[in-house]
Nucleic acid binder design. Structure first.
Lengths: 341, 341
DNA sequence: CTGAAAGCGCTTACAG
DNA sequence: CTGAAAGCGCTTACAG
């Protein structure tokens, strides 16, 4: 493989001059530029990433910490990964994908060894043991998901509280007074899936404020259990006219559960979920939903991360939590409650 | 950040000795080992990956070339990524995930710059422009998916021809004589999705051999079009009693399409698909299927790749194509054809 | 068994 | 505007 020394020799200049031409950081004469570029072309020269990283302390790689937990819904995660990956590439960074079970250890490994210039953490829990490692690391990080203590961290997340209020508001306006919220399985909550209770608490508060009843239930996040859960939940609440689904797997299982029960939406039941449009398309979900915008969150997180990476010496921009506002995508699954129910 | 020089100083030895203790490649005295290890501990030393890569020409990173084509089904791809990623980590490698649209250029970039020790190519097409780059690269590669010309390449794939024969055989044994194969959309075939015709050709041949009729159709790979396609296909072939589904999106859309038509499986129609068990669970697909074993393929590909990476100087093991045998997972969606049809 | 030295391929002050 | 030199943090013959 050609080195910059080869390029310099072929071009008849010194290595520093060749380097300067390629980086463009110093003014060089046009004729020398031509000679160097011709040599690069002729030799098929590409800089060695390791050597460059050693010299510049920049790897142009971003670590992406994903977690595929057995009780979470993998396809939903993919969208975040793609959002992060695409934005990173646009900004000139490659992605080191880390999906080990022990995220804290993995994070320590890739930051301590300086394999990455920064990291994006997915699926952040309320108490997340990766945060301690991140705070101790010398590279910056961006989180997708709000932890209990977001101090000194760049956090991006959907405004789940607002989403909960929005779901309730939408159904109350249509005349519903008996609502049911189906959430993630208990483990997700116990593990610190704060988004679950952020949405739920706000929804409950809004329901009380509006004088309607909102009950809650949780369903599994995997087939076939979630199908049984959904059916049981529907059976247990015959008086409910408005269903809020905060569980991707449950949303995916709902069409057939409704079918089996001979129910249709919105005629018998108004349904509103919380997932991405892409997800709705993949699973052909006919329900209106709060867009969770994984691609936008990934993009925001990476942009902020790169800004921080590239201004290491510059202004110490304050850290902060940025929520994106929920938007309701109407797919026609909500309407006035059926008089009979 | 502590360097090996710091470790050496604290331990009171030379840098080479510190390095030798850590690599274990040379015999060192126990007392010196203790001192070096203590220094490592005290300083929280982790080797700098870039420096090590420069010195050893090994990055311990594997490039994973994925493609998310708009007309392919993203969740199916995720399983391969996880299979590759998990196996790589077990063997001590990290994953550089590359999902750019221009795969050839991306491949050239990461191999030329020596960011990776080897690469795994996903979603390999019959004529794949990444192969030329791979053959020119100095790192080894492993493919998942059989290209038209697999010369000098390590290839892993499901035996799609055998899968086609198996599907036909299974239904013919049950007494079916009118079969229909639903394949991927035309673009996938045109783009060189050889697996589509490998399965189809073998299925047609087997059907002829067994004296039954097998017709073919293709459906879109995305909602909502695939739902419409499936319905139209069912309507157009009322006499069919056995359905072979070689299209993940179509399989996912089939339950509701059957429901709408008032058909059930296997009573009205015997159905057999080709997807992974994990996929079946995610989409709660009730159909028997040929297991596509993405995790096993990923594992085989990475193991072989690592073997090649780590025996660069050693024996030149011959390249080759390795098919994994299809296995039928019975989910009870096939039976004798209904007499009436 | 240990250490001094060279080298991996780049970049970057610095002198001219 | 160009080049000689030093340095980034490792590893690895080589001499002792």
């Amino acid at each position: 493989m050609a080195t910059i020394g080869d390029v310099a020799r072929v071009a008849g200049v010194s290595r520093s001059t060749a380097s300067n031409v390629l980086s463009g950081k110093k003014v060089t004469s046009p004729e020398i530029q031509v000679r160097v570029l011709a040599a690069v072309e002729q030799l098929g020269y590409t800089p060695n990433a390791g050597a460059r990283a050693l010299a510049t302390s920049q790897t142009m790689v971003i670590g992406l910490l994903a977690q595929f937990l057995p009780d979470e819904f993998a396809p939903a995660m993919l969208q975040y990964i793609l959002g992060v990956s695409n934005t990173a590439r646009e900004l000139g960074y490659d992605i080191l994908l880390v999906s080990e079970a022990d995220g804290a250890r993995a994070l320590k490994r890739i930051t301590d060894s300086r394999m990455v210039d920064g990291v994006v953490l997915l699926n952040v829990a309320d108490q997340d043991d990766r945060l301690e490692v991140l705070r101790a690391a010398s590279q910056p990080g961006a989180l997708i998901g709000l932890p209990g203590d977001p101090r000194d961290l760049d956090v991006f997340d959907l405004d789940f509280a607002e989403a909960g209020r929005l779901m309730v508001d939408h159904l109350v306006r249509l005349g519903h007074r008996e609502l049911l919220l189906v959430s993630q399985p208990e483990h997700v909550v116990e593990r610190g899936g704060a988004y679950v209770w952020r949405l739920q608490d706000a929804a409950l508060e809004e329901a009380e404020l509006r004088g309607v009843r909102l009950r809650t239930a949780s369903a599994a996040a995997q087939q076939p259990q979630v199908g049984r859960d959904i059916t049981a939940i529907l059976d247990a609440h015959p008086d409910v006219t408005g269903l809020l689904v905060h569980n991707e797997a449950a949303a995916a299982a709902l069409p057939s559960a409704l079918h089996v029960r001979g129910l249709s939406s919105p005629a018998d039941l108004s349904v509103i979920g919380r997932y991405s449009d892409e997800f709705a398309r993949t699973f052909s979900l006919p329900f209106s939903s709060i867009e969770s915008a994984p691609d936008r969150l990934g993009q925001l997180a990476v942009r902020q991360l790169v800004r921080r990476i590239e201004s290491r010496t510059g202004l110490p921009e304050p850290h902060g939590v940025r929520f994106i506002s929920p938007e309701l995508v109407d797919r026609g699954s909500t309407g006035a409650p059926r008089p009979g129910r």
